[in-house]
Design a protein around this nucleic acid. Structure first.
Lengths: 202, 202
DNA sequence: TCCTTTATGTAACGATCGATACATAAATAT
DNA sequence: ATATTTATGTATCGATCGTTACATAAAGGA
């Protein structure tokens, strides 16, 4: 029973990836249905039959983004033996991923829809929720550092997580301005220079 | 000879301020001419006669923005006696300005047009140029710190300026996510914790 | 007073926006 | 073979996009 009726003639996942790259490069509002259908290689009715609407397509595209792009950024968090190395790897992987030339620069979650419009309200909220989730991942790793005794008991994990998440968001804009991986690494060095000050004198 | 023909019936500067606030809140692409004329209280032909086009209006609005909004952020840079205090005041003023409730959160220069569209190409480039100017202001202040002996000769002023500019850009997104002034101050504390590491062991 | 100049108000321009109606094609179910 | 279900292709929907003709109103210059 998996297939009834006429089978679709295009690869749904491949079309979704094309949509993701377009949204990634131009944002939600900046991407038109005409551009989407052209990039995905399908007609407008096929797109609506397969994905529902432009808004639903964006939500599915961001979900696909989090599952396929920049995963090395977040796996680095848990695999590093110390919280310090975890944060540094997190930022270094970010610098590398954001400056790749074979894909849009910066992060779709950070840049996809920053302005709360009447049409993109749900989109904006969804991205905001995903940013909050990323903040939580940083927070959990830092709290683990406190639990393991690497960081002092009075360490403000939430403030530190906010700081490093904010640095990452800034790196998206920096990458959009054409910064190279080396230039992004300068920001990483600055952010890691803060580690001793944050961990030492809490 | 200052006035020939029928005088305009609206305050051009007041209308420009309304346009600025709208662009600030919703971005270039996200703001429509209908919204602009409604907020400015004028008709479409009056807008075009006074400002030329939507693109020209945005450029003039961003110029008005830099002359009127957040000036305390940049004056703090030169007035502080030390580079360290200059950067800290710069960031603290940023935290305060970005979280005000009587105006849009974050920075128009950082958030106004991040996606290089076919229509907003010139807009995007103009904002990018303004961000580069802000980076230069930070760079000059740090170089002055080196010249005055506050910072060691090998201090990488450019890398530090990039770091602090990136933190400020991230604070725009953080502010858009609803962060309070106190929450932004956590990021400021993190960024300033990096100072000793950057200035000490260069 | 007449002419020029600039601004306003109404109305609408062509283009593009996101989204669909409709008929047809291709598969399974009975 | 017929009915049902799903996808495709063409053509277009009403709404909104940024922009502008056109006639009229209000000022200064001759």
């Amino acid at each position: 029973m998996p297939e009834r009726g006429r089978p679709r003639t295009f690869d749904r996942t491949a079309a979704l990836r094309q949509a993701m790259e377009l949204f990634w490069a131009k944002g939600y509002e900046g991407t038109s249905m005409a551009e989407l259908t052209a990039a995905m290689g399908i007609s407008s009715p096929s797109l609506y039959a397969a994905f529902g609407s432009k808004e639903a397509l964006f939500l599915e595209a961001t979900d696909y983004y989090t599952r396929t792009e920049g995963t090395e950024i977040w796996t680095a968090l848990d695999e590093a033996p110390t919280a310090c190395q975890a944060i540094e790897n997190f930022l270094r992987q970010t610098a590398r991923a954001y400056s790749q030339n074979d894909r849009p620069q910066g992060c779709l979650i950070a840049l996809g829809a920053l302005h709360k419009d009447s049409s993109s309200g749900a989109i904006c909220d969804d991205l905001r929720r995903r940013r909050a989730e990323n903040h939580t991942l940083l927070l959990r790793r830092l709290e683990r550092g406190v639990a393991e005794g690497e960081l002092p008991p009075g360490f403000d994990s939430d403030a530190a997580a906010t700081f490093y998440a904010t640095v990452q968001h800034g790196m998206s804009i920096q990458a959009r301005d054409g910064a190279s991986c080396d230039a992004l690494m300068a920001t990483v060095a600055g952010a890691m220079a803060a580690w001793q000050g944050l961990a030492g004198t809490a």
